[in-house]
């Protein structure tokens, strides 16, 4: 129930690095973005970032996750978010239980990290 100096230093270093990333946008000269190419790039940022987070998780973590991902994508424009979440969690649990019991040739069933989440 104590905090060692080494641990404190490490936690502060992690916090400083994370805070620096989170505050980085403040030093951006926002008025310069205006219109044109730069504005188009910025407008595309949410979609570009989210797609880049999702794609490796859905396409390189084995057939079970790809299958559950397909279910989620098909449901995304048709159902309310809470239903898509329930469907996604259910599909992932089922597909992993089913496909990971008998791995498909050569494909890692779950190279997924336990959690790349926050």
């Amino acid at each position: 129930m104590s905090i060692s100096l080494d641990a404190l230093l490490a936690i502060l270093a992690m916090a400083a690095a994370t805070m620096a990333c989170r505050l980085a946008g403040l030093v951006l000269p926002t008025p310069l973005i205006g219109t044109g190419r730069l504005a188009r790039a910025f407008d595309a940022m949410p979609v570009a970032i989210l797609s880049a987070i999702l794609a490796p998780l859905l396409l390189t973590r084995g057939p079970a996750d790809a299958l559950a991902g397909a279910v989620v994508i098909l449901a995304a424009t048709r159902l309310p978010m809470i239903a898509v979440i329930a469907l996604g969690v259910g599909a992932a649990a089922a597909a992993r239980a089913w496909l990971c019991a008998r791995p498909v040739s050569g494909l890692p069933c779950a190279r997924r990290s336990r959690a790349r989440r926050d």
Partner: peptide
Amino acid sequence: DPAALGLDFAFIAIFVVLVAGF
């Protein structure tokens, strides 16, 4: 492991719905 329960797909589902919104 919460991943065995598919809980990590809650985040994936949220993000997919948000992307689809655009």
